[in-house]
């Protein structure tokens, strides 16, 4: 892509393709920006996506970019509506790859019920990017029953995870490192907005906080929340749902799954009184079949995350700045 042809031409060519595939009335206006009507409280979120490889078992960068922003909005208690979409493409990406990404973007948008209303495409010289970078921003209006804020976390809250941990990170790693496990590990990237919306319909402000534990894994999310809100968090290792294959792969590689990245997964801090019903409802959703109560917000050890380990003993959980480096002597 872009090889031998001028940047301007390429951008135009790409633009026309993008417009064709993602066509919708707002986008078709081809204005400098989209004109949209918003009512009530609105959530606005943005994220850039860089993933290597761009195609991985269970998905590609395109749907990741849509789901990422859709889910970030959903975590705010919003119903995602409109997206912006920008590409930075490195010379050398093939047309076929690009169209495939674009098609899965379209597909993911349809699934999530969002529309791309504005966007941009830039091509950079070879070596100045990594095949393709995607930025998406999104807007959505807050669910009428939602009252989500980390300030609402309180002692006794139950912590519920929607599904298996570490699948996405291990899927990416297995392709990147060329590791052949017994069967292929699939990323679980998906949109969570419908699931969340349904939970908000039923449980409203019994849901205190929603968060998606992407980079840094669940450990990092918990530590951030504990530190930021001055509460203690207890996690029970035995309750953590994890796919057998993923668990074996982590074990084999000496990785701790609580530090491995996730997609299509969310964590809810809910009022103690609704925890069991919440779990039941969530488990009936396609995105929550493996859901489980994995922890509690506690008064002891403020700012600390403690994991009750399977072999016994309480482990201190921290954020992971960068790679896991060996510490055992």
């Amino acid at each position: 892509l872009g090889h031998g042809s001028g940047g301007v031409l390429t951008n135009k060519l790409l633009d026309s393709g993008v417009f064709k595939i993602l066509s919708n009335p707002l986008l078709d206006e081809r204005h400098d920006g989209a004109l949209i009507n918003l009512e009530g409280k609105t959530a606005f979120s943005t994220d850039s996506f860089l993933v290597s490889p761009i195609f991985f078992p269970g998905g590609n960068i395109g749907e990741l970019a849509v789901n990422g922003t859709v889910n970030d909005l959903a975590m705010c208690g919003a119903i995602p509506k409109y997206l912006s979409l920008s590409f930075i493409i490195e010379e050398g990406l093939t047309m076929t790859e690009f169209w495939e990404i674009l098609l899965s973007i379209k597909c993911a948008c349809e699934k999530a019920g969002v529309t791309v209303v504005t966007g941009d495409t830039k091509v950079v010289e070879k070596g100045k990017g990594d095949k393709i970078f995607i930025n998406t921003s999104g807007i959505g209006s807050i669910h009428p029953k939602a009252n989500i804020s980390s300030k609402r976390i309180k002692i006794g809250d139950k912590i519920i995870i929607s599904g298996n941990i570490a699948s996405h990170g291990m899927a990416i790693m297995s392709v990147r490192e060329g590791l052949q496990f017994e069967s292929e590990i699939l990323s679980d990237t998906t949109n969570l907005n419908h699931t969340i919306s349904a939970l908000l319909d039923t449980f409203g402000d019994g849901i205190h906080l929603l968060t998606d534990p992407t980079r840094g894994g669940i450990a990092t999310v918990f530590k951030e929340i504990a530190q930021h809100n001055g509460v203690g968090i207890d996690i029970f290792q035995s309750e953590l749902p994890i796919d057998n294959q993923v668990s074996n792969a982590c074990e084999l590689l000496g990785l701790d799954p609580i530090y491995v990245a996730n997609e299509g997964l969310f964590i809810s801090f809910v009022d103690e009184s609704i925890a069991d019903d919440f779990l039941k409802t969530l488990r009936n959703d396609d995105n929550g079949t493996q859901a489980n109560i994995i922890g509690t917000v506690v008064e002891t050890h403020p700012k600390q995350v403690i994991m009750e380990s399977v072999i016994g003993g309480k482990r201190v959980v921290n954020m992971l700045p960068g790679e896991q480096l060996p510490r055992i002597c």
């Binding site: 084999l252 590689l253 060996p326 055992i328």
Partner: peptide, 10 residues
Amino acid sequence: DWIAGDKMAE
């Protein structure tokens, strides 16, 4: 080479 994190020590 150091591989497999803390597992190598075990």
